[in-house]
Amino acid sequence: MANKTASLVLAFCFLLISQSNVLAQANPLTQPLTLLESNKISAQELELHTQALHDLYVQQIESYKFVEKDYQVAVNQQVKLGTLSSVEATLTAAKKAMVQRTDVLITYFNLLHDYVVVAQDMFPTDQTQISNMIIDHIHAYQDHLVLIAGINDRASLNLAADEFDLLIADSANISYRALFLLDYSSLNSLRLETIKIYQQIQSKQADLPLSEAKIAQRDRAYLDIESVLAKLSAEDEQQRELTFDPKRKNGLDIYRTGAKLLGNTQAYLIKTLKYLSELASVI
C-alpha cells in the first residue's frame, strides 16, 4: 500500500514537472512577457522577441484573410441553397474564422505589450495599469478560444460571437490608450534629452569669461528657452491629465486629444532646439 502511494506521488510529481516544461517550451509567443521578466533579459533578446511576434502577427493576418473569405463564401452558399449541409459548412468556416481572428488579437496584444514593456519615460503607474489590462485581455481571448472549441451548433456560435463583440470593443479602447502612452513616452524621451543638453550648456557657460555683448545675447536666449520650456511643461501636464476611464471607453478620445498635444510638444521641442543651437554658438 505504502509503495503504491509513494509511486503514485512520485509519478504525479514527474508528470507535473514534465508537463510544465512542455507548456513553457510550446510557444513562448502565446504568453505576454511581463514587466518583471523584461527587466531580466537583455535588450537584444527583447528585440528578438518583439520581432518574432511581429512576424507571427503578419503571418496570422494573412491566414485570417483567407479564412474570412472562406466564411463569406460559405455564408453566400447558405443563402443560395439554404440546406442543412450548407449551414454545417458555414458553422465550420465561421469557427475557423473566429479562431483565427482571436489568434490575431492575442498576438497583437502580445506585441503591443512588448512595446509597453520596453517603453522609457512612461509613468510607472500608467505602465503597470496598461500592462495589466493588456494581459487581462490576452487571457480573455485565450478563454474565448476554449469557448469556440466547444461550439457545435448555430445558436452557441452566435452567442460566442456576441461575447466576442463586447470583448473587442473593450480591446480597441485599451489599445488606443496604450498607443497614446507609447507615443507620449517616445516624445517624452526626446524632451528630457533636450532639457539635459540645456543643463549642460548652462553649466559649461558658467565657467566661461564672456563679454558684455555675449552675456546679453546669452540672457536673451535663456529667456526664449525658458519661455518655450514652460510651454512644454504645460503641454506635458495636459498630457498627463488625460485620465483613462475604461468604463467610459475614452481610449480613442484620449488618443485623438493626445495626438494634438504631442504635435504641439514636437513643435515646441523644435523651437527649443533652435534656441539651444543659437545659445551654443554664443558661448
Partner: peptide, 20 residues
Amino acid sequence: KPSRNLVFPPVQTNIRIAEP
C-alpha cells in the same frame, strides 16, 4: 509615433450564422 506601426487589427466583428 510608434502607434503608426501598431494599428488595431482589421478583423471582422459580425461573424454570425443566420437561421436556415
